[in-house]
Each structure stands twice: as structure tokens, then as C-alpha cells.
Design a protein around this nucleic acid. Sequence first.
DNA 1: GTGAAAGCGCTAACAA
DNA 2: TTGTTAGCGCTTTCAC
Lengths: 320, 320
Amino acid sequence: MARLAEVSTATVSRVLSGGKPVSPEVADRVRVAAQDVGYRPNPAAQTLLRGSSRTVGVVVPDLGNPYFAEILKGVAAEAAATDHHTLVAGTEEDPEQEYRSAIELARWVDGLLLCAPRMSTPRLREVAEAARRLVLINRVLRHSAVGSVVVDYHLGVRALCEHLASLGHKRIAYLQGPTAAWSDQQRQRGFRSPEASGLTIIRVPCGSTLVDGQDAVDEALTYKPTAMICFNDHVAVGVLSRLRELGLSVPGDISVAGIDNAPMSAHTDPGLTTYAVSTIELGRQAWERFTPRVTTATTHVQGELVIRASTAPPPHRPRR
Amino acid sequence: MARLAEVSTATVSRVLSGGKPVSPEVADRVRVAAQDVGYRPNPAAQTLLRGSSRTVGVVVPDLGNPYFAEILKGVAAEAAATDHHTLVAGTEEDPEQEYRSAIELARWVDGLLLCAPRMSTPRLREVAEAARRLVLINRVLRHSAVGSVVVDYHLGVRALCEHLASLGHKRIAYLQGPTAAWSDQQRQRGFRSPEASGLTIIRVPCGSTLVDGQDAVDEALTYKPTAMICFNDHVAVGVLSRLRELGLSVPGDISVAGIDNAPMSAHTDPGLTTYAVSTIELGRQAWERFTPRVTTATTHVQGELVIRASTAPPPHRPRR
DNA sequence: GTGAAAGCGCTAACAA
DNA sequence: TTGTTAGCGCTTTCAC
């Protein structure tokens, strides 16, 4: 290729990287030759030399989950816009894989975007040490320089509680997320103030998937709540589905609320009341933390209450 | 690191790559030192030397779309299982970006998995030339050695038509996918035989998203179909949503069917009749085409008809 | 404005 | 079994 254009490899490099002093005629000759041969520099060699792969890594629990898929989409789009690539790993909701994938990717990428709700804190510190740059999603690593982007889920939960309380609900079941998930703990925080105000919250073990929601409904109903708040919209859709099977009407017999505002939540029947979080914004914010030296350790992303048809006043029940 | 263990770099390499003749004591010394320093070989250097990055690239129109998200999930999981990484790019449904991303990633990866419904055939050939290995999803490149994994959408469409015909439907609207999308053409093929048998198919321009579905309903209704087949389940959910707004009952007033069996389709109200395609299987098949030298050019993935509550006999209408 | 040469970090080939 | 050396493909000095 260099000999095709009758120049040295150095000159080829100068032309192709641009902004270097090269005579126009030579530059043209090189470009033509490159076009002819379809020459493109070897990225591994460039990376080795520059010490940067212009690549960002994204590690999430489940690539198939729309929530994470959209975060990924946001990040990949931002990355591509600044000529960066995106390396991904799904960890199958497994703390061991969260660690392995993160450590593995860390060596490749310039920066790592990590959503690892289950990884232990010590291991998280290891990852922080291994990665050139690290941004955490929905998790905070205290006493460290690691930045985070977190959704204020406690505000969301509180807003949902207030909404339900204002409708007259007194007994609310909370269908919990995966145990030990950092963001479930955030949600739990949001119940403090409503509980202090007299609301009864019944915590029911559940999970993060649609099927988890379906399966948790029957137990939740044994506590006779008049409303359910679900770990996320995924779960809520499962709940709606199971309630329909049971012949219960939503919101006539029971109110249901989700969290996240998944794309489908506006289109369930009834439409789902939820705490809307912009995942695209989340991804964008996470990306931004890479580029400049952002000062604040944690970026808080706020959502907003979206009231649809799945919540209404509780049914009148005969008093004894 | 090498001097910490008091050995040469070559020995370090031998220990860490394994399967090389090294004395146990030295091996231990190296491993301890590596552990201490947290040493991991530079992947760019390894790639440069080996000529392989152990990385697969995945290019899809929309990373946020559950259909592609699940394909990605399948591929990433298979890749990780054999110690490969996954590089992704979303192309925002733009043919130009499909090309640029593919060409760009091709240089990085050992193999490229490409879902580019809109890219022109000549450009596709360019990509085929640039990539070490290439597998196409839902597209075929004729007169080439490029392998494909395609869903037999024409069979799906035919099955849906037969199902609807057996219920008594005569006029069916098809809400088309993106113009020039290869897989929409496949679906169109599926109407040939039903049309020959006397079914009337009305083609309505639509698209691939939920919102496209919502927007296309009103026009579709002007043709007075008794059933609608949608480009995919996404569209179908939008259709259900709009029909509900209009006060039309499904399947009482009109039947609706989708294609793909998205995760949510079992949980809409009514449940969506659809042609179920296993995206995980799609991803897995695509991955398999990389490893051995598969003989057949094209792998066909078949789906199956899933009948739920959204399809039923057409309403009785007064004859004049 | 251009070429020659060094070297990024690693591993395979060759020596010892 | 281990160390020394060359070279993967590129970019960046340093000469000219």
C-alpha cells in the first residue's frame, strides 16, 4: 500500500490521521491508493501505540431487558458520535459474572460503565482499580473517586405512595426486587416517610421479571392490600396478567403501580401508573461522566410520576 | 512484574497462557506475582500478534428494540462462553450508518453479525469483502459465500392467513414494515398463496414501531378489513392500543395478529395471536455459523403459530 | 515535506 | 526448562 503510492509508511500514516504537514499531491496519491486497496489501519496496532482503544465497555445484568437495552442504546449512540466503540457483556444476573465480565472488559476499554447490582463492595473496589475509568449505574461506591449515575428511586416510591394515599389507600403491598440489589434498597428507603405517616406497607418477595410478578401475586393477595407497588414495570405487567386470570379488576378491585415507565406501560390495559425514568437520559449522563472531569461524584436522575388508569380509589368494603 | 517474579517476560507469558512447559515452582512464583500486581496482559498487544481479537461484532438497526436486544443477548452469551467479546453498534434504522458501522467494526472483529435490512446490495458486498467472517441476519446475499440466518417469515404469514381464513375472514389488512426492508419482502411473499385462494389482502404503509402501528390504524380501517396482520408484535401492540381508544373491541369487532412473539405479547389484553420466533435461537444459530465451516449457505429458522385471544371469527354483518 | 528507525506489549522461534 | 530475540502494524521522534 505504501509502495503503491510510492511513499513511506510514515507518510501514509500522516495523511490518514490528518492534520499533519503533507504536500497535497502526495496526500492525494495516498488517498487514492488507500481507496484502491481498501486499506484501513489495524486498530489493534493503533491501540497498542496510543494506549487507548477508543472503546467503552457496558456491563449489565440482562441485555434482553428493555431497561438495560435502552441504556445501552443511549450509550452506544453517544459513543459512536465521538468515534468510540461499545463493548458489551450481559451477566445473567449473576454476581460472579458481573465481576468476571467487568474485570475482563476493563483491560480492553478506556472506560467502563457498570451496572452490577449484586457485586460485593470489595470486588467492586477491585474493578475500580482495574478500570481506567469507571462509572456506576444505580449504585454508589462510598469513599472512592468512582462516579455514579443513580435514579432517585426513593423519591419515586414516595411519590407513588403519596398518590395512592391521596386516593384513600391504607394497605399497600410492595413486590420486592432481587434481594441484595442496591436499587431495591433505594426503593425501600422511599417507604420510610409514608410508613411514618401511617401507611401500611407489606413487603412481598418477588424479583425483577414479568414471571416473578405473576408468581408473587397470589401471596401478595393473602395480605389483603388495596394496592400493589411493583419493583418495576416488568413485574407490574406480570401482576396485571395474573390478576386478570384471577378475575380481579384493575383498578376496581385493586390498584397496581410500576416503576421505570417501560415502553409498553402506556399500552397495557389498563395503562400502568408508574414512576417514569428516562433510560436514554441515564445512558447519556453516564457517557458524559467519561469525557470531562466531572466534579460531583454522583449524578441524580429524577423521574416523574405518570398517572394512568391502573390506580384508583380502593373499593368500598363493608365495615363490621 | 517479570522482575518481581525473577523470570523473563517469556516465562510469564508461558505461565499465563497455560499448556506450556514450565516448572511448577516458577509457575507458582509467577502467578503470585501476577496476583500481587494485578497484572493482566495487554489485549491490544495480544491481538496484534495473534491477528485475532476474539471479538464478534453485532450490528443491528435498533439496540432498544427487544427483538434485536434478545438476538444480541443470545450472541453475547454464546460468545462469552467461548471467551469472546461482543462489540455492538446500533444504526438508528439508517442505511448509511448500517454501512459505516459495519465497515468500521469489520476491522476490529474476527466475525461480524449483520442485521442491515436497508443497506444496498453493492455496499453489502463491500462489507463482505472487508470482514474476516460475516453472517447476515434476515437477509441473503446471492452469488456469494456469505452465510445467513433467516426466519421463514413467508411461512408465518401464510400460517396466519390460513388461521384467519379458517375463522371466516375474507378481507385482511397487512400493516407493512419499513419500505425496502428485506424481511418485509419475505412477509409479502407469504400472501401469494392466500391471495390465490381468494383472500383479499389490503396493504397499508406502516413501519416497525409501536407508534407506527397506532398511526396506521385509522387508514387501515377505511378499507373495512375484518382482521389485521401486523409487521411485528410491536406494531400490533400499537394497533390494539389505538383500537381501544376508538372503542373497537378485539377480537369482537376486528381480529389482530402480530409476528415475532415479543415477550409482552402473551400479556396484552387480549393476548396477541402471533407467529412465534425464538430470537435466542436466532442469535445462537448466527453464532454457530462462525465456529465450524458450516456447509449450507442459509440457515432457516422456523417459528410457530401461537393462537391467543386477539383473533376470532369476524362479526356478523347485515348483508344487503 | 519526507524517510528511517525506534518502540508500544506481547508471544513464537530459536538457543542454551 | 528457561532466556534472548524478532516482529505483529502502526505512529512518532529525529534527521535530512
